[in-house]
Design a protein around this nucleic acid. Structure first.
Lengths: 178, 178, 178, 178
DNA sequence: TATGAATGAGCCTTCATTCAT
DNA sequence: CATGAATGAAGGCTCATTCAT
């Protein structure tokens, strides 16, 4: 059911349409979710749990630091590009207090190892010593910028452009020496 | 009136409340705007025209390229931080087909000289030779990342942190040599 | 509008029907009342304010005590018999916490002089010296019993029967001597 | 099952909650009752059959007429005071066409001997010669008045007050001589 | 006989928009 | 130009009832 919901998008979708497109009755939806807000929360948690898993899926922590970074970047990029609805949802949900802080917090555990990865990078002088929150937000923002260009068809995002975007993201945080 | 509207925020604000807070009657609003969509369009145009003006307000085109970049970055940052409602509005409006492409296009002229600035940077080998759209999106994204951290109170964004963010943004696009 | 509402009855009436029967749009109703509960409260207050006025309308406080009592009894009886919807409403509203205590309290001032009347009766040894609340509840209950018989067509409530009912109500509380 | 239902109250209780509180599945309820209306009817019949039994339970028809009356009055009073849910139910059900006349008629046999008791009272000039329906309604109303005061905690209904209420009820119908 | 997921009509309410004054 | 009462489509949600297991 959740899968279906994500595929259809919740956006400004009325429950009636949601029901119709999910081929279930409205009442059935309320059998599984307390209210519309909970559906959104559930999708939010699903997407950002997924994302957390996807990012670190095929990373070789032992390998070259920059290469690992690149792989992680691509993982997020590909996740959103191949799941445009998930992307739109994540963009949409970021706005007013649609999602309560407590729900956001619930997804945080899934990002622990990403945090660790960046902390290690700082310690090993692979990336610069600035506030972790800043590093993560900037990096995430960079991926999203690329996804957005692709999603809105403003750029084809071919191999070269993806490479450029990654290089930008890396240069934005890489350790610059003394 | 527009000013008022922006100050109050149109967010998910119903027209009735908009009228009440603006101290005008609902009917009066409909004398000035065709419908709610038009109000949003008008605000959109106002904000992004403002922004276009603000960015290049105090730039010395003749000075050091990087310094000019930094000033521009700060201009945008400060505009949004001092106008949180404008920031929230811009975040919100970026999502579904709220704003038609034609309205977006109307604001483009205000960004011509910014485009020129980056093109000059590429030509003069100050910044790297990647797609202009990518450069602009990444740079805008970097500012927004900083604003968001400040806006959500996730980081105090003191001088050091702002400096770090700018440095990141610059390194993300600066020319790296042969 | 209130008048209309009472005439139609609110009972289990959905707002949609209420609107249709009042010949106004649903939205219009919500222009005047905050919600359905408020409509009910308003009717409640109207009816019981009316009742308070009606009871003491044509009483000659100076006349014979029992006659005054009889007139008051008849006033209530006639009010409900000629306003069957008001009667049904008053019966219906007495059930679960439909009406909040605060609303009930708002109507109490209208019954001050009735209270005074009974207190005087006790002092002047016209009616027996039992708890005022008991006297009033029993007396009100007696009128309601008569109204109910009439309303449900279980009895024609002709002159004789009305006279009997009043006599009962009076004997139930009249002072019985030492 | 019925017992359970009464204990829980059907009031405005949705079937789902009813099922939960009765520790049975919704479907199970529909094996025992045709629909919600039937549950209410069944409870109605149960309560008013109970009441009919209770009233005459410990009456000594041979004893003093007034004492018998008092005992009956107390029987009803105690039944409702010790079964507040039954009381609330009886109040609630008295209103709109919740209960069909045919169901009401079904409970009438249980009140035959009460009717007989009053008829005997009239014949023996213990109580006044007014319409039986009036006598019964007034008397029932008087008990209910007392119960209501107790139920709503408006009066403690101590021994004295109960005695007063009974005396009132009796005086309301007792034969007053020629 | 027991279960409870599924159903959908219908309820209350919101809010963008109109129009007579 | 200004007003705000009136409008009604549409949304979120409840709950009595059904039916496959």
């Amino acid at each position: 059911m959740l899968e279906l919901v994500v595929k259809q998008g919740v956006h400004a979708t009325p429950m009636s349409q949601l029901a119709r497109e999910s081929n279930v009755a409205i009442g059935t939806i309320y059998h599984h979710f307390k209210n519309k807000g909970q559906i959104i929360e559930e999708i939010y948690k699903m997407i950002f749990k997924d994302l957390g898993t996807v990012v670190t899926a095929n990373l070789e922590e032992e390998g070259n630091y920059k290469d690992t970074f690149k792989t992680g970047w691509l993982n997020v990029y590909n996740y959103f590009v191949t799941n445009p609805l998930a992307f739109k949802f994540s963009e949409w949900v970021g706005v007013p207090p649609i999602i309560s802080q407590s729900v956001v917090d619930e997804t945080k555990p899934h990002y622990e190892n990403i945090k660790m990865f960046f902390l290690r990078g700082i310690k090993e002088q692979k990336i610069r010593n600035i506030h972790l929150r800043l590093i993560m937000q900037i990096t995430y923002g960079n991926v999203i910028s690329a996804v957005r260009l692709k999603d809105k068809n403003e750029l084809p995002m071919n191999k070269k452009q993806i490479e450029d975007a990654i290089e930008s993201a890396w240069d934005a945080i890489k350790y610059m020496g003394d």
